[in-house]
Each structure stands twice: as structure tokens, then as C-alpha cells.
């Protein structure tokens, strides 16, 4: 996982609430068996015109297609971003497209976890703060800085907001740490627990006949 420390980038203002993972990456693109290559399908149904099925003619009305947002690494959205399906493909698609941070008032639980495991920083700001950034991001060339170490979101016009993040998650993001490796540090505790737990037969999915 790529470490994240500080990022300054233009930001796409996606002024929508409850953006679900079906929108982030529609189901027809979940059939691949790789982790990479999902970026071109990010927001597919909004990003491309509907008139021809599976067409790849960009929809000029979709904000991400505006030339001023080319190369953006920060996404702004309204509340409850990433709700719905558990598909990690949503995080893979955002990351593969180039987004490294999403700023919104709230995020859905499973997406929150998936994003963290893919090096994407999710910054929760207040409704008013997000709304201010959305307005400013209308101006071409406007840039936002996400500083994970300081837990702040700032811009060159004096905007400054701080966000909360679990210290463990922060450490993992800053250092690009692999979760499985971290868990395996607790192998002794796991072995001990498992030996006891295996005798608690109610915990076995496939109970042997007594």
C-alpha cells in the first residue's frame, strides 16, 4: 500500500449525497478477477452517455468530465458517501483513477474500511466546511491540501479545518502498512484463543454429530 503523508491537488466537487458503491463502480465491471484496471469504469453510468448501451462517449454534464478537473486527486462529496454494496472494487476504482483522498461530511462503514486498506484518506468535515470547499472548487485551478500527519484540510485562501482519524488507521496510512502482517504479530494470542474456542462447539459452522 502506498504511504500517504500530504497531498495538494485540485478537487472534483461531486455535489451529491448518498453516493452508493453501485454508482462508483456498476456491477457489470465486477466480473474481473484482478485488483487493477477499474479506473476507466469509475462512475460509469454518470460519466458516459446513456443513449448507446455501454458507450464510452463522455457525458459533458458530469462534473468529473470538465477539463478543469483533469488530474484531480481529491474528491468532494455530500453525506453518506460509499453506502450500499461492500464491493472493494469501489475503492480500487477511485484509487486506480487517481483519487487519493475523499472529503465528505460522513461515509458508510464498509466503504470506510475498504478505502483505508487501499491507501485512500477519508476526511470527515462538517456540512458547512464541505459546502465551502464545493463552492471554491468551482474555480479552475483551485487546490486543496490534505495533511494526514496534521489531520488538516487547508487551501491557499486561508481555509483550515481539522478532521478526526483513528490513530491506528492513521499510522497504517502514513506508513502504508499491510493489515495481515500486523495481525500476525498477535499469533500467540490467536493460537491460544483458537485452541479454547475450537472446544466451544457452538462456534463451529459444521458441527460433528455427537
Amino acid at each position: 500500500m502506498q504511504p500517504f503523508t500530504k497531498l495538494t491537488s485540485i478537487a472534483v466537487p461531486l455535489d451529491r449525497a448518498n453516493v452508493d458503491t453501485d454508482q462508483i463502480i456498476p456491477k457489470q465491471f465486477l466480473k474481473r478477477i484482478e485488483r487493477t484496471g477499474y479506473g476507466e469504469f469509475l462512475f460509469f453510468d454518470w460519466r458516459y452517455k446513456l443513449d448507446v448501451p455501454d458507450s464510452v462517449t463522455p457525458n459533458p454534464e458530469f462534473v468529473m468530465n470538465a477539463p478543469q478537473y483533469k488530474g484531480a486527486e481529491i474528491l468532494l462529496a455530500d453525506k453518506n458517501f460509499g453506502c450500499g454494496s461492500s464491493r472493494e472494487h469501489a475503492a480500487w476504482a477511485l484509487s486506480d483513477y487517481g483519487f487519493r483522498a475523499v472529503i465528505a461530511p460522513t461515509f458508510a462503514d464498509i466503504f470506510f474500511s475498504n478505502a483505508g486498506k487501499n491507501g485512500i484518506v477519508l476526511a470527515r468535515l462538517t456540512d458547512d466546511e464541505v459546502s465551502t470547499l464545493m463552492q471554491r472548487a468551482q474555480t479552475p485551478g483551485y487546490e486543496i491540501t490534505v495533511d494526514l500527519e496534521a489531520q488538516t484540510v487547508t487551501d491557499a485562501q486561508g481555509f483550515k479545518a481539522s478532521f478526526e482519524i483513528d490513530p491506528f488507521r492513521k499510522e497504517c496510512l502514513l506508513n502504508g502498512l499491510d493489515d495481515i502482517g500486523l495481525t500476525l504479530r498477535h499469533s500467540a494470542a490467536l493460537d491460544k484463543f483458537e485452541a479454547k474456542h475450537d472446544n466451544e462447539f457452538w462456534s463451529a459452522p459444521k458441527t460433528a454429530t455427537a
Binding site: 474500511s113 475498504n114 495481515i180 500486523l182 500476525l184
Partner: peptide, 21 residues
């Protein structure tokens, strides 16, 4: 019972555990 992403699926396969807040 709860839904998880693919990285967590791999985590459970490897360790039969999950770090969970």
C-alpha cells in the same frame, strides 16, 4: 454477521480474525 471488502476477506482467510472497531 456483517459484510466486508475483499482485503478483509483475504485477512480472514489468512488469520480467521478481523481487526474491528
Amino acid at each position: 454477521a456483517f459484510g466486508i471488502g475483499t482485503s478483509e476477506v483475504e485477512h480472514v482467510m489468512a488469520t480467521q480474525t478481523l481487526p474491528q472497531s
